[in-house]
C-alpha cells in the first residue's frame, strides 16, 4: 500500500488507556482472554463433535476390530457421554491445566505438546529475529535511499514477498537450496545446537519472508515519515552528521510504530509455521495440529488451539502495553 504512517488505529485502546491506568487495562484484557478461550474451546469442541467419523476409528485404523475393543475405547475417552457432559469433563480438567490424554498416542496432551514445543519455538524465534533484523535494516536502507535503485528493488521485493504464500516460498526454497544446490538439509530438526540451527535455516527464511516484507514496508514508511519532520530538517540545517541524525532523531521515533507491529508479525509467524512445518517435515506444534485435526484427536486439537490462542492474545496484549509505554503521548494520557 501507499506509504502512510503506521500506527495502531484501534480507537478503543486509546479510550481505555485514557480512562484507566495500564494495570487495570491489562486485568481487563486478561479477563476477556479467559472468556474468549472458553468461547473458542466450546466452538472447536462442537465442531469436532459434529463432524463425521470418530477418534476410535482413527485410532484403530484400517484394521479389523472387535466390538469389545471399540466399546472399551469409547468409554475410556468418554465418547459415550452426552455432548455437554463431555465438554464439562474436558473443561474441568483444563481449568486445572490437565488437558487429558491424546487419543492417538496415549500420551498426556501436555507431554506431547511439551515435546514438540521447543522446535516450534526455536523456529519462531529464528524467523522473528530474521524478520525484525532484516526487515528493519532494509526498511531503513530503503528510506534513506528513497527513490534510488536500492529503494526500488526493496519496494518491489516487498510486494512480491507479501504476495508469496508461505508454503510456496517453502517449496521454492526447498527446491533451490536443498535439492538443486544441496546447501541446506531438507527435512527435520537436526540433532540440537548448531545442527538444529542449520536445519531450521530454510524453514525460518520461508517463514520470515512474508512478515519480513511487512516489516520493511512499515519501517520504510515510518522512517520516511520521520525524515520529513521539521526537527530533522532543523537538525540537518544545524549541520549535524547523517549518522547522528539517524541514530538520535530518526531511528528512535521511527521504531515506535515498528515495535508495535511486532505483535502482528509474531502472530502471523505462529500461523505460517503450520505450513512450513508440514513442508519441511519438522515435527512441531503446527504439524501436531494438522495431524490431530485429521485424526479427530480432540484433546490434542483443544490443547494446541488453546496454546496458540493464549500465545496470540498475550502477544497482542504485550504489543499494546509496549506501545503504551513507548509512546509518550499515550503514556501521559493525552492524545
Amino acid at each position: 500500500m501507499s506509504a502512510v504512517t503506521v500506527t495502531e488505529p484501534v480507537g478503543e485502546r486509546r479510550q481505555l488507556s485514557d480512562r484507566w491506568p495500564i494495570l487495570l487495562f491489562i486485568v481487563r484484557r486478561l479477563a476477556a482472554m479467559v472468556v474468549m478461550l472458553a468461547l473458542v474451546s466450546f466452538l472447536v469442541f462442537s465442531l469436532v463433535h459434529l463432524a463425521p467419523g470418530n477418534p476410535v476409528d482413527a485410532l484403530l485404523g484400517q484394521k479389523p476390530r472387535t466390538p469389545e475393543t471399540v466399546a472399551a475405547l469409547t468409554a475410556q475417552f468418554h465418547l459415550d457421554r452426552p455432548f455437554l457432559e463431555q465438554y464439562a469433563i474436558w473443561a474441568s480438567g483444563a481449568l486445572r491445566f490437565d488437558f487429558g490424554t491424546a487419543i492417538q498416542s496415549g500420551l498426556p496432551v501436555m507431554t506431547q505438546i511439551a515435546s514438540r514445543l521447543p522446535v516450534s519455538i526455536a523456529l519462531g524465534i529464528f524467523a522473528f529475529l530474521l524478520t525484525m533484523i532484516v526487515g528493519v535494516g532494509l526498511g531503513i536502507l530503503a528510506a534513506m535511499r528513497r527513490g534510488r535503485t536500492a529503494d526500488r528493488v526493496t519496494t518491489a521485493s516487498v510486494v512480491v514477498g507479501l504476495s508469496t504464500p508461505t508454503f510456496v516460498a517453502a517449496i521454492l526454497l526447498l527446491y533451490v537450496f536443498a535439492v538443486l544446490l544441496s546447501w541446506f538439509p531438507a527435512y527435520g530438526k537436526g540433532s540440537g545446537g548448531l545442527d538444529t540451527l542449520w536445519h531450521l535455516t530454510l524453514p525460518a527464511i520461508a517463514l520470515a519472508l512474508g512478515s519480513c516484507a511487512y516489516v520493511v514496508k512499515h519501517t520504510r514508511a515510518a522512517m520516511i515519515d520521520v525524515l520529513d519532520q521539521d526537527y530533522i530538517t532543523f537538525a540537518r540545517a544545524r549541520g549535524l552528521s547523517r549518522t547522528r541524525i539517524l541514530l538520535t532523531y530518526s531511528l528512535r521515533n521511527a521504531l515506535i510504530p515498528v515495535i508495535t507491529i511486532g505483535g502482528v508479525v509474531l502472530g502471523g509467524l505462529i500461523v505460517g509455521a503450520v505450513l512450513v512445518e508440514v513442508t519441511f517435515s519438522i515435527q512441531g506444534i503446527g504439524q501436531l495440529l494438522v495431524q490431530s485435526a485429521g485424526a479427530k484427536d480432540l484433546p490434542v486439537i483443544q490443547g494446541v488451539t488453546m496454546l496458540i490462542g493464549v500465545l496470540i492474545i498475550s502477544i497482542n496484549l504485550c504489543a499494546d502495553v509496549i506501545y503504551m509505554l513507548v509512546d509518550p503521548r499515550l503514556r501521559l494520557g493525552r492524545r
Binding site: A178, V179, S182, P185, A186, Y187, G188, V278, F280, S281, Q283, Q287, Q291
Partner: peptide, 18 residues
C-alpha cells in the same frame, strides 16, 4: 530410527545419504 511425516521428506533424506 528417524520418523518422517511424508514419504517425500524421507526420500530427500535418503537422497542426501541420511
Amino acid at each position: 530410527w528417524t520418523f518422517f511425516s511424508t514419504d517425500t521428506s524421507a526420500a530427500i533424506a535418503f537422497r542426501s545419504g541420511e
